[in-house]
């Protein structure tokens, strides 16, 4: 399997685990199981904003999608959609960030707005990830040649570790999210000696 597909899938898995945790936390707050932890939510917002936009999407847009446009006529429509979704995803992320501020400032009365934004954001991202995994990557494996993969792999190699980011900054952020997230979602809340 080309290394770059491994990396894309790895980034999807890491992102999906944070999205899944965000869903659990929003549902838990709505049900009264968790108190809102804005330190945690802020860390999650940084992760879900930065990792796709700084680490993940540029690799797809600049290398994988660009090469597939040349080699895979069947992928054109899907790539057009995914590129639009990258832009739309950016807007939804900003909307979610903006909805966090009133919740933090005004309290539970502003939670419903954040919950609505989070639901839209999460549903959108699950669809987007599924399109890439189920529709685009199979076409990429079918249509790209070893030379194409060699070039894409080389371009991806600059950011090899899919979880850490170029300077390992996102590995620490990910660990912080796991540490803060309430058990059983993460390690948060366990007793200290």
């Amino acid at each position: 399997m080309p290394k770059s597909i491994d990396i894309i899938r790895g980034e999807h898995r890491a992102l999906a685990s944070v999205l899944n945790a965000l869903r659990e936390i929003v549902d838990g707050v709505a049900a009264g199981r968790f108190q809102p932890d804005f330190q945690l939510l802020s860390a999650m917002m940084v992760y879900i904003a930065d990792v796709p936009e700084i680490v993940h999407h540029p690799k797809e847009d600049d290398h994988l999608f660009a090469r597939m446009k040349q080699r895979s006529p069947d992928a054109g429509v899907i790539i057009d959609r995914l590129e639009k979704e990258h832009v739309e995803g950016y807007a939804l992320t900003r909307e979610l960030e903006h909805a966090l501020v009133p919740w933090q400032g005004l309290g539970q009365g502003a939670f419903a707005q954040f919950q609505d934004c989070a639901t839209r954001y999460l549903d959108f991202n699950w669809r987007h990830l599924n399109t890439e995994e189920d529709e685009l990557l199979p076409l990429a494996r079918r249509d790209l040649k070893p030379d194409d993969w060699a070039e894409i792999d080389a371009a991806f190699a600059a950011n090899f570790d899919p979880f850490a980011g170029p300077n390992r900054e996102y590995a620490a952020l990910f660990d912080r999210i796991v540490d803060l997230a309430p058990a059983p979602i993460g390690h948060g809340g366990s007793p200290r000696a």
């Binding site: 898995r13 890491a14 999906a16 685990s17 944070v18 899944n20 945790a21 659990e24 979880f163 990910f174 660990d175 999210i177 796991v178 997230a181 059983p184 979602i185 993460g186 390690h187």
Partner: peptide, 9 residues
């Protein structure tokens, strides 16, 4: 949980 599983991976 998925988040912790991911950390282990």
């Amino acid at each position: 949980a998925p988040l912790i599983r991911q950390q282990i991976w």
